[in-house]
Each structure stands twice: as C-alpha cells, then as structure tokens.
Design a protein around this nucleic acid. Structure first.
Lengths: 243, 243
DNA sequence: CGTGAGATTGACTATATTCAACCCTAGTGG
DNA sequence: CCACTAGGGTTGAATATAGTCAATCTCACG
C-alpha cells in the first residue's frame, strides 16, 4: 500500500475521494482543488505540526494515522484525537495550531495553502457543508472519549479501545477471532487512554489470561470473544451502532 | 433578566444575535429564520432532550445554561458539554439525539423545526459557515476537557473549573476578588469533572483553607488569588488566551 | 547472535473512591 | 417569629484502583 506514488494522483482516482472534505464537490470545484493541492509524506513519529506554530496549510489525510495531542506544563500528555484517512487537519479561521500533530504510522497528506483554501471555502458551500459534517463527527467522537476518560476504569478503557479497533477492521458483520494491528505503540496508547504504561500492560495481559484476546508479537491482537469484550467496556448493549 | 418575554422578540433585538447560528445572516436570511422560529422555556433540572429521542427541533440557547451528558449502563454519568447562550443544540443530518440535554438553570431556546432548518441550511452558506465555526469551537473546548479528564488531578480539575468560570464572568482584564456564581449543583460539577461529591467538596475546602478562594452560601465563590489559582490548574502560563 | 528499546512483572505508594456519620441552611409550617 | 425538616454539603476512616519505582524480560533489528 505504501508504494503508491501520490505525486500526481488525480482527485477522481483519490482513495478518499468519497469521504474527504471534497466529497460533495462537483467537477468544477474539484478542478479548483486539484490546482491547489500538494502531497507531502511523513515517516513514523515525525511531527506534522507543533502546537503554537502558525498554520500555513490545512490538509486531508490520504493514507496513514496521525494523532493530535496536548501536553501540560510538567509533561503529562493526553491524546485528543486520532486522525484516519479522509480526516481533515487544521481549520479555516485559525492561524495557529492548537495541538501537536504526529504521524503514528507513515502518513501522506493532501495539503492546501490555508489562505487560498479559506477564500475558496467562502465561495464553495459544498466544502463548508462537508467541513461541518466532519467537525460534528469529530465532536461526537470526542464526547464519547470524554466518557471513557472521565468515568471508565482501566479495564474498561482497554476493552473499549480494542473493541473500537476491532469494529474498524471488520467488514460489516461482527464475528469472533478478529485480528487487529495496533496502529500505535504502547506509549501512544497510554496517552490516548489517560493511563500509564504499566497499567496498560497489566490490563492487556489480564484480558489475555481470561481468554478474551490473544497477543502475538508487539502490535498484533486477536479478539477471541467479542461479546465478553463488549461486556468489559461498560457501554450500553445497543449504543454506538453508527460510526 | 428572567422576566423578559421572548414570545415575540424580533431577531434584530435578540441578545444572541451577534454570536448565534444566525450571526452572519443578512436581513433576508434573518426574515426566513424569523418565520420559522419558536421560543420555548425550561425550568431548572427539566430535561430538554433525552438520549435516543428523535430530533424534532434544533435550537439556539437564548438564555440560561444547559448540560449535555452521557450515562453508562450502570449509571455512571459524564457531562460532555456545557451549553451557554448562543450555543447550538442538535445538528442537521442527525435524526437522533446523542446525549441527554438538561437545563441546569432556567433556559430559553429559540427553536427551528429540524427538517425545515436542514432545507434552509443547504441554501444558506452563511448559516453553514457559522455552524461550522460553532462546531469547531466546541471541538476545541471538548479537547481541552479531554486533557482535564484524562490527566489532571482532582485539585487541578477544580482549579481549572473555577478559573474557567472566573474568566467567563470577567469583563476583560483579569483582576483578583472575582465573585462567581456556580451555574450548577455539586452533583453536576461532579459529573462535569469526572469526580465524586466527596472529592469535589474536599478540594473546594482545601483551596479555601489555602486562601485561594472563599466560599459563601451554596453557589457563590470568590476567587481571591487568580495567580495561585492558575498555578493549581497545571496549564501552561500562556495557554488559552483565546475564548 | 547480540543489543537495546519496548514491554512486562512485582512491590509499594498515593490518590481518589466508598461507606458512613454528621452538619448546615434554606424553606416550611405552626 | 421560631423550631423543624429534608436535601445538599462536609468530614472522617477504611479501601481500592491506578500510579510509581525498579528489576527483568523479549522481540525486532542490525
């Protein structure tokens, strides 16, 4: 997958064409974007944007996973978002970056110069509409995460995390024995869930001992028993059947 | 303030005219909204929307404070948003409510039938633009709250909470001896901060003993020493000078 | 095959929760 | 006008959960 060259890909062939900020655009609007865009790639752990930096570009993630995180004065950090392909980085109307953006896997961005993009936004309702939808979806995700951070136990946090990954890697119908590749290191999981390394490790192995999951290698998990995994999340039986 | 009648207020005289979803609208667009809107008031603790309910209306908060919250299976609840005047409840494109919405003070809404509003949105870029801005602002707030929930100590949570209220009730320049009215009960504060009643009580009184704040009555706080209050939040010295 | 970063495990500790008793104070009715 | 009451709030002691510190392991890589 990583050997695709994005140097000169056409928007019409873009893998995120149907979900990204441009998804509602017609051919004319797409041509405008086509002329503005530039691709840029980042290696694992490379910082895409530093907090406080002036925001020169906004961008869609074409490929890979990026994380948004905030850090307190004494170094404690909390991940506040996980950006997947078709997600949008940066926002029109803001001149500074609000958090550190880091590539947790190799990442390719489709970038637009912020000022030009802002001008385009004012004249292109289809883009604003899509941006609004994207923002509202992220808001829903952020709010679910607030429940996890504020009220869930370490065990429930881990179970929720694995279930989320399992759901994403599934085609449609949930079935057992789903194998999952963690898109991040333990260290990043820790900051995502608001826990420590040791606690994350202990909870992974507790779930393993109980036969809910199996671990193989460093970043590979198999969800053996999805129903007991779900029970461990603390969530309603029927919640979140969207997304 | 509560004896204003909103039954027939004109949009042009509306207290939230310059900040709400309609803030960018021109006279023509405003007339369309004027003909769609209806006011509705709620008493303290009245539920405005239940989670899972079909979303008949979207609305702006004209007056009062409302809370958004989510509840886990076993009853643990987490507040995921605090809505103030000019904030927008509901979202075009969603047919169900994602969380419980409750009036924490007397609330007056300016409501629009969702379906009609959605049709208007498609034709009115000014509204979509503003909705996007509002959503992105809420997203910023949600992300700050994620840091608080995931990484801050009880003391830091309380200090951050008080500082936020102090900043809101200030005109502009920070000065000491700010008096603050809590817009919620201890119980709601608990769910906002992801703590327990006892812990909140203890931390309030610890800050009082240290002379950082004084308490009088049930819902009244005075922030005596804003700088030591800020030190207790764990935040960067210069962060969040927007909002 | 050796190395070192990443991950695990164990022992101990700290922080916040739980459980329980008690205290205010605003609002009520005599 | 005052005493009573109930709900919200406070305080204390015991407990639990996750964090800290430190030693050890293991896997992926050269």
């Amino acid at each position: 997958m990583n050997n695709i060259s994005f140097a000169s890909i056409k928007c019409s062939n873009c893998p995120i064409r149907h979900r990204a900020v441009c998804s509602r655009c017609d051919d004319g609007e797409l041509t405008l974007l086509e002329n503005m865009k530039s691709y840029k790639s980042f290696v694992v752990d490379e910082v895409i944007l530093w907090r406080g930096e002036p925001l020169e570009y906004v961008a869609s993630i074409v490929e890979g996973v990026a994380s948004l995180s905030k850090t307190l004065e004494d170094g404690r950090t909390q991940m506040v978002g996980l950006m997947l392909p078709s997600d949008f980085i940066g926002r029109p109307g803001r001149t500074k970056v609000e958090f550190d953006v880091t590539a947790t896997t190799p990442v390719t961005l489709c970038r637009f110069e912020r000022k030009r993009f802002e001008r385009l936004v004012l004249e292109t309702p289809h883009i604003v509409q899509r941006l609004m939808e994207i923002a509202l979806d992220e808001l829903d995700a952020a709010r679910d995460w607030m429940v996890l951070l504020g009220r869930k136990t370490a065990r429930e946090k881990i179970a929720t995390f694995i279930e989320m990954l399992a759901r994403r890697s599934l085609v449609g119908i949930p079935e057992n024995n789903v194998s999952i590749e963690l898109p991040m290191t333990r260290d990043q999981i820790v900051n995502y869930l608001g826990l420590t390394l040791e606690t994350v490790s202990r909870q992974f192995n507790a779930l393993k001992k109980e036969g809910v999951i199996t671990l193989s290698g460093r970043k590979s998990i198999r969800a053996v028993d999805l129903s007991s995994l779900h029970c461990a999340t603390g969530d309603d039986a029927d919640s979140d059947l969207n997304s």
